[in-house]
Design a protein around this nucleic acid. Structure first.
Length: 271
DNA sequence: ATGCGGACCTGTTAGC
DNA sequence: TGCTAACAGGTCCGCA
């Protein structure tokens, strides 16, 4: 469900309410998520104050003096702030309860998400250490993408969705960015020219920034920290629009499958 | 190193 | 209306 804009929307939504708050208790209703929730989280987190809520790629980090809580929302996860006594529903797996009576509640029907407890520098963790640059940082530029893509036969859409290339570009925004850059998704990454790398980097930055502005994209069930949906869906040009006509050129939007995922593109605008 | 398919889950929807 | 199959925002792992 969440790509970078949805995770960033969640981060921004919960940070003001969670930073500075002291954890009193962790309520675990279901241990089996993507990875088993470590016992150490239940033991070590209570008593800690959350210093900062950060994001790296699609991972959220709640930093405390003793360690960091690392959260991934997978395909269907959401984090919401609720009163601690709000009854938990079926897929509400974990509550981080605070002294002020609020709780940060993780809901995740498909359970592809994760909550881990990291000691030491979280950026050195296996899951974070080899991630590519943040798409909205200066490190992600056309020259980087150009060099990185040399000799790659992989389709450009799969290439930009690879978190080792750049983090945070998921299935929706990969299609959207390629449309905006005028690049067809099947093109081998190694065939990108410098010029097209400029356009693609620009498109990725623009589409992600715009989506963050709109509070993310809600296809069916994404909600932010207070339960509100995102409004970027109405800005989508190709994603989910097979058979509709392109707003740019009028051609019919097409769909194909790449890496077991749907890709959407306009055969008129994308070459 | 690269590239691909399978695996992990449940819920919703499309199609017969 | 009901059943079944396909599909859904992610990404790690193992194999060729």
């Amino acid at each position: 469900m969440p790509e970078l804009p949805e995770v960033e929307t969640t981060r921004g939504g919960i940070a003001p309410y969670v930073e500075g708050e002291v954890v009193t208790e962790v309520v675990l209703r279901r241990r089996k998520l993507r990875y088993p929730v470590p016992q150490a989280l239940l033991v070590d987190l209570p008593g800690q104050a959350v210093d900062k809520v950060e994001r790296r790629g699609k991972y959220l980090l709640l930093r405390t003096e003793a360690g960091a809580v690392m959260i991934h929302l997978g395909m269907s996860g959401s984090l919401r702030l609720v009163d601690a006594d709000t009854p938990a529903e079926k897929h509400d797996h974990i509550d981080i309860v605070f002294e002020n009576g609020q709780a940060l509640r993780l809901r995740d029907p498909r359970r592809f998400g994760a909550m881990l407890w990291l000691k030491g520098d979280p950026m050195q963790h296996k899951l974070l250490i080899s991630l590519g640059p943040e798409p909205l940082s200066d490190a992600f530029d056309a020259e980087y993408l150009f060099q990185r893509s040399r000799k790659r036969k992989q389709a450009v859409k799969l290439f930009v969705m690879d978190s080792h290339t750049v983090v945070g570009v998921g299935n929706i925004y990969a299609s959207e960015a390629l449309f905006r850059a005028g690049i067809q998704p099947q093109l081998a990454a190694g065939k990108l020219t410098r010029q097209r790398c400029v356009a693609l980097v620009e498109a990725i930055k623009t589409v992600l920034s715009a989506a963050i502005q709109q509070g993310g994209t809600t296809l069916r069930d994404f909600v932010d920290g207070s339960g509100k949906p995102g409004y970027f869906k109405q800005e989508l040009q190709v994603y989910g629009r097979v058979g509709e006509s392109c707003q740019q050129c009028g051609a019919t939007i097409k769909q194909l499958r790449q890496g077991q995922r749907a890709s959407y593109y306009c055969p008129g605008c994308q070459r």
